[in-house]
Write a protein that binds this DNA or RNA. Structure first.
Length: 552
RNA sequence: GUCCCUGUAGCUCAGCUGGAUAGAGCGGCUGCCUUCUAAGCAGCGGGUCGCAGGUUCGAAUCCUGCCAGGGACGCCA
């Protein structure tokens, strides 16, 4: 990429300046290249002279001028200037920019790919909600974050595996089974009490009715423990498949569904516990087994095996992460969690460190909570109590594309209100349609050109010299840099900003430059440009998991 | 009490590994459809970047304290 070339040029110029004694031999700070916000400052800029000035004890502008004089001419760069107080600005050549249209057309949907991962294996684990009830909006946020990030990591040269971890063991599952059986009995006219920690939502009643329609009352006639377990299994499978459907509707899919239960069945849980025990990280106290994380600088110790002999969620998670890193040998693991799991981060990092795994290989994305409202009315989102608005209802009401865009346009760090009324009311003005409209407009131009029998394979891109054309090309060329930003920060929300500015640039170009005109050669050149723009818009939308419609 | 996230335009939010006049969308006000989609374009107005200190040539961005909102501190997950 161009950025690397510029960094090389700067590094060499600095070294040369030092050799010739024009610049004191101080250690070079990391050479960084920025994109200036003011176009008058060129396409790229570096503040290296300003950073060098302190240690060198010289005037930054003098350093900038000296370095500028040492940077050789290249095919891409029109000019390099030193600007006060000590920036070096690079401006690209118009004809080089124009030629990039051909590169984009040749690359097609691979344009934007940039090999940062070199094929290393990264696992992205997300959603991973207990299959004890329907998904709600908060889960949707994690789902869209995860799927978009995965798409982008793939574009960034990583081999990505998307995984859903489901807790089919443990006390929540137990509470689910008992709740479901209670509802089942109640609906069949038997007196049964809901467990105190049970799932009270109406969906459990509906689920019980559905199952009765399917299997009748036969679970009343077999031993209760057996009935509960079998019925629970059916309910669990039903909820899991509903989740899959909801996620599919959101265009979120997974490569693997990982069962917590499997960790106990294949002995991995025991193996990890004995490893921790051998390492001296476990202690028996208060009738339970503890991971002594205080010895590793944590605030407190954590129970791994409870007094009743059952492992805690934390213990299962330890085994699960051991499985990810040691058994399956992922180079990097990214977990996406809601803010309510924040407190779990440091102890999990501590324990994988204790297992001899570099904690930096585990990266956590914690997204803040989502509150759902309809106007000023706050909607319930909790699973255990009462009625909820499900993710499914939100998708049906708002639509997949708008939903994805809405979740993606805010950083994971900010808590958000999902206002159904607003989302619906603003649907036609939603930025997602603005971006898609740009794509549809281009499709329309290409359609008209086709109808008129205009072929443009022989179009000459060097005719693209006007300001709106070059501005558009510059914007197109940012896509690989956006992919790089998202891969490095793990913040997919930058994509929405890019999509929006790209669409703006195109709409503006569209107004100023007529594509299909009497000038046949220019028409062909511009058809190439809008063709390239269509590719970049589509790619950006696809990275975000959205559709790129040809008509609107 | 401790830990994490947030506080930027009327509203919703970008910008935060320090850089050159603080941005976008929505809303408000003005213009623009004989020609490829007006779900569009151009322009105007709008800001003590929560508050107070500090570091720096330079702070919305980094550090400290305070205030406000959200989340977590469980032998739940």
């Amino acid at each position: 990429m161009l950025k690397e070339i510029l960094i090389d040029l700067l590094t060499q110029a600095a070294a040369q300046a030092q050799q010739s004694g024009k610049l004191p031999s101080v250690t070079l700070p990391p050479v960084t290249i920025e994109r200036p916000q003011n176009p008058e400052h060129g396409d790229y800029a570096s503040s290296l002279p300003l950073k060098l000035a302190r240690s060198a004890g010289t005037n930054p502008l003098d350093i900038a001028r000296e370095m500028v004089s040492l940077i050789p001419a290249t095919a891409e760069i029109e000019n390099i200037t030193a600007a006060p107080p000590g920036f070096i600005n690079f401006t690209l050549k118009d004809n080089w920019l124009a030629q990039q249209v051909e590169s984009i057309l040749n690359a097609g949907e691979t344009f934007g790919n940039i090999d940062l991962g070199h094929g290393s294996r990264v696992q992205v684990e997300f959603v991973s909600i207990n299959p004890t009830g329907p998904l709600h909006v908060g889960h949707g946020r994690g789902a869209i974050l995860g799927s978009t990030l995965s798409n982008t990591l793939t574009a960034g040269g990583y081999q990505v595996e998307k995984e859903y971890y489901f807790n089919d063991a443990g006390s929540q599952m137990e509470a689910f089974r008992r709740s479901l059986f209670a509802r089942y009995q109640q609906y069949l006219g038997k007196d049964a009490e809901m467990p105190s920690e049970g799932y009270l939502g109406n969906y459990m009643v509906d689920l019980a009715k559905e199952l009765i329609n399917e299997v009748g009352d036969r679970f009343l006639t077999i031993p209760e423990v057996e009935a509960m377990s079998a019925l629970g299994r059916l309910g669990f499978e039903r909820i899991l498949s509903q989740m899959r459907e909801d996620l599919k509707l959101l265009r979120v899919d997974f490569d693997a569904w990982f069962s917590e239960q499997s960790l106990y069945e294949n002995g991995q849980f025991e193996k990890v516990m004995s490893l921790l025990r051998e390492g001296g990280y476990l202690a028996e106290k208060e009738n339970a087994t503890w991971f002594v994380s205080t010895a590793l600088g944590e605030d407190k110790d954590n129970v791994v095996v409870r007094g009743d002999g059952l492992p805690t969620y934390f213990a299962a998670d330890i085994a699960y992460h051991y499985n990810k890193f040691i058994e399956r040998k992922f180079d990097r693991v990214i977990d996406i969690w809601g803010a309510d799991h924040q407190g779990h981060v440091s102890r999990l990092k501590a324990v994988i460190g204790a297992l001899g795994i570099d904690p930096d290989r585990l990266e956590l994305i914690i997204h803040q909570m989502v509150t759902l409202r309809r106007g000023s009315e706050l909607m319930r989102v909790s699973k255990r109590s009462g009625d909820i608005i499900t993710l499914r209802e939100v998708i049906d009401e708002v639509g997949t594309d708008a939903c994805r865009y809405f979740f993606l346009s805010r950083s994971a760090d900010s808590q958000m209100d999902f206002d159904l009324e607003l989302a619906k009311k603003e649907a036609p003005d939603n930025p997602v349609y603005y971006v898609q409209y740009a794509h549809a407009r281009i499709a329309s131009i290409l359609r008209v050109a086709g109808e008129r029998g205009i072929t443009h394979a022989d179009g000459d891109v060097s005719l693209l010299t006007s300001e709106p054309e070059l501005t558009l090309i510059r914007k197109l060329l940012l896509l690989p840099e956006m992919v790089e930003v998202v891969v490095q920060t793990l913040e997919p929300h930058h994509l929405t900003y890019y999509a929006q500015t790209l669409a703006t640039t195109f709409h503006s170009f569209y107004k100023l430059c007529r594509v299909i005109s009497d000038d046949q050669t220019l028409t062909k050149s511009r058809l190439k440009l809008v063709g390239a723009t269509k590719i970049v818009l589509a790619r950006t939308l696809h990275l975000m998991g959205m559709t790129a419609p040809d008509r609107m």
